[in-house]
Design a protein around this nucleic acid. Structure first.
Length: 343
DNA sequence: AACTCGTGGCT
DNA sequence: TAGCCAAGAGT
């Protein structure tokens, strides 16, 4: 029996069918969910997906919303360029694609935020067309099944995996097959302690036969993460408004609202003295905040500024905003900032 | 090709 | 429990 046939049969009894984006499925839901699921686990995505879809139920609603509104619903999910690209693409869809996700791989891939795998997911799950995918689940399943022992991030191995995925993807019932192979990766062919006994394709699996599931996919030793130390200015005025600053277009948390930040305490002093036209004031150190990114560790030292008696601040600048804690929901704010303000 | 881009679940 | 690593894409 064919690989795909076994998986499709297995899916009927053991596959996931209750995920929010699988209910009354359409290309828009598939698109949004796939973008959210990039490098992000299902359980993390679910609450974000539900509130996002309630607010932006279709392409048109998304396209006519402001970027700030969209970002506020992405706040805490990470990889914020995904949200910007989602919004950008929704406008493109309205302007040039009749308000719909296109049904060809080349057109999909031309859109911001949609690569080959996401395009494959939209085509198969959304349009029931034959299209291969290659996410982390599929990579793990196929690398074990075909015994690919090298570093899977190498382009030669990526190419190999795409070719295997293309070969195994069936013409018929491609949507179910793609869902099935992702489910197999998530539920059976897990990174650690895979449930090979329950696997529908274990008979042909080279890693199972040779007892290599522990070694495939190969673990590659990572470089040590650098640390970055910064100061955060926590300014609070007499009405308990908090000062936030829009971050640069480049770097982490691009374009999000955060505390004024600097690697030097003096620069931060200069910034608020210019901003408030105030002279030296005392800053109170608060307990530092540690936040771990995928590629560096951030240590932020919050400096509390009592801005009750400061002169009027320069409100011309669009870069700054005084905001009440209760209105934080309406802004794109990174997780640690939101957490900090909760207390 | 290698690096950037977040956050939280899992072990 | 500290580190690994996810329904990847852009540059």
């Amino acid at each position: 029996m064919k690989f795909s046939t076994k998986l499709i049969r297995w899916h009927k009894t053991d596959g996931r069918k209750d995920l929010p984006w699988q209910q009354k499925k359409n290309p828009y839901k598939v698109w949004v969910s796939e973008i959210m699921l990039q490098q992000t686990q299902v359980s993390t995505v679910i609450p974000f997906y539900i509130s996002f879809l309630k607010r932006f139920p279709n392409v048109k609603e998304l396209a006519k919303s402001s970027e700030e509104d969209v970002m506020s619903f992405w706040s805490g999910l990470g990889y914020y360029s995904r949200a910007r690209n989602l919004h950008k693409t929704s406008k493109l869809l309205v302007d040039k694609f009749n308000g719909k996700l296109p049904g060809s791989a080349s057109a999909l891939i031309s859109l911001p935020g949609i690569g080959k795998s996401t395009a494959g997911a939209i085509l198969s799950l959304g349009y029931d067309k034959r299209a291969p995918i290659l996410d982390a689940n599929v990579k793990r399943v196929l690398s074990r099944h075909e015994q690919i022992e090298g570093d899977l991030s190498k382009s030669s191995n990526i190419k190999k995996l795409w070719s295997i995925s293309e070969r195994l993807t069936p013409l018929d019932q491609c949507a179910i097959y793609n869902q099935a192979i992702m489910d197999l990766g998530a539920l059976i062919c897990k990174r650690s302690n895979p449930k090979c006994k329950r696997c529908p394709v274990k008979k042909d699996c080279l890693s199972f036969k040779k007892n290599l599931t522990k070694d495939i996919p190969k673990k590659v030793d990572k470089k040590s993460k650098p640390s970055k130390n910064v100061y955060w200015l926590i300014a609070i005025d007499k009405d308990e408004n908090i000062l936030l600053k829009k971050r640069n277009k480049e770097g982490v948390w691009a374009g999000l609202w955060s505390f004024p930040e600097s690697s030097s305490k003096e620069k931060l002093r200069n910034e608020y003295q210019t901003l408030f036209k105030s002279k030296q004031k005392k800053l109170k150190s608060l307990p530092e905040i540690n936040h771990s990114f995928s590629h560096f560790n951030l240590r932020a030292k919050p400096l509390l500024l009592n801005a009750e008696n400061c002169m009027q601040h320069n409100s011309n600048s669009r870069k700054y905003k005084w905001i009440k804690k209760t209105r934080l929901k309406s802004l794109g704010v990174p997780s640690p900032v939101k957490r900090f303000l909760e207390k």
